[in-house]
Amino acid sequence: MTTTFEKLNAGDTIAGPKFAVSRESIRLFCDASLDYNPLHLDDEYMNGDFGKTNFGGIIMHGMNNFGLISRMITDWAYPLGAVHRRLETRWLKPVRPGDTIQPAGIVKSKQVASKSRWVLIDVLVSNQAGEKVAAGEAMVEFPLD
């Protein structure tokens, strides 16, 4: 999508790339983040009760959702001369090997300040069944020329 700050409207959408979750992608994220928690690696551990939740197997790192959303926002904003400034997310549902997830964004509002212009974006990640697995809000700055 090629546009300018002036042409953006509430309701405009941003689509991120699909991501196929596999045991290998989870392991690679463990290596990148140095997070080797057994909930990401150990099926036997995860088949029991984990706290008060039974996930029934290993799950993807929640921060992997964060990374996918960040990539989507940056891929959209940078060519427009904008900068990704803030991202807040909540994990809503576990993601497992075999899932295919996709981030998306919807422009919520825009605001002009004395030194810059801002766009607020609702973000979400959905799985192949259309279930939301993560949701949040991003802020993008369009610096004044």
Rank of each mutant, 00 (worst) to 15 (best):
M1L: 10
M1C: 10
M1R: 13
T2G: 07
T3Y: 08
T3Q: 12
T4L: 05
F5A: 03
E6K: 13
K7A: 15
K7F: 06
K7L: 13
N9W: 00
N9G: 06
N9A: 13
A10N: 04
G11D: 08
D12E: 06
T13C: 05
T13F: 04
T13I: 12
I14A: 02
I14L: 15
I14C: 00
A15V: 12
A15H: 07
G16R: 02
G16W: 02
G16P: 01
P17I: 13
P17S: 14
K18L: 12
F19Q: 10
F19R: 13
A20C: 07
S22D: 10
I26Q: 04
R27T: 11
R27W: 13
L28K: 12
F29S: 04
C30G: 03
C30A: 12
D31F: 03
D31Q: 13
A32C: 15
A32I: 10
S33I: 01
L34G: 06
D35N: 13
Y36S: 05
Y36G: 03
P38S: 07
L41D: 08
D42M: 09
D42A: 05
D43L: 09
E44R: 03
E44P: 00
Y45L: 07
D49L: 15
F50I: 14
K52F: 14
K52T: 14
T53Y: 09
T53W: 12
T53R: 13
G56H: 11
I58P: 01
I58M: 12
I59Q: 05
I59A: 09
M60E: 12
M60F: 09
M60Y: 07
H61I: 04
H61G: 04
G62C: 09
N64L: 15
N65I: 03
N65G: 08
N65A: 15
N65S: 15
L68G: 01
L68P: 02
L68H: 08
M72K: 10
M72A: 08
M72C: 05
T74V: 15
D75Y: 09
D75A: 14
W76C: 07
W76D: 06
A77K: 06
A77F: 10
P79Y: 08
G81W: 15
G81D: 11
A82G: 12
V83G: 01
H84E: 08
L87W: 03
E88P: 00
T89E: 10
R90M: 08
W91M: 15
K93I: 00
P94H: 04
P94V: 01
P94A: 05
R96T: 11
P97C: 02
P97N: 02
D99L: 00
D99T: 00
T100A: 09
I101H: 00
I101L: 06
Q102C: 05
Q102M: 10
Q102K: 09
K108W: 06
K108L: 14
K108I: 08
S109C: 01
K110G: 01
Q111P: 00
V112M: 10
V112G: 00
K115G: 06
S116R: 11
S116P: 00
W118H: 14
V119I: 10
V119Y: 01
V119T: 09
L120K: 09
I121R: 01
I121S: 03
D122S: 09
V123R: 02
V123E: 00
S126Y: 04
N127K: 02
Q128K: 03
G130H: 04
E131F: 03
K132C: 04
A135K: 11
M139Y: 10
V140D: 03
E141D: 08
F142P: 01
F142N: 06
F142A: 09
F142M: 10
F142S: 03
P143R: 12
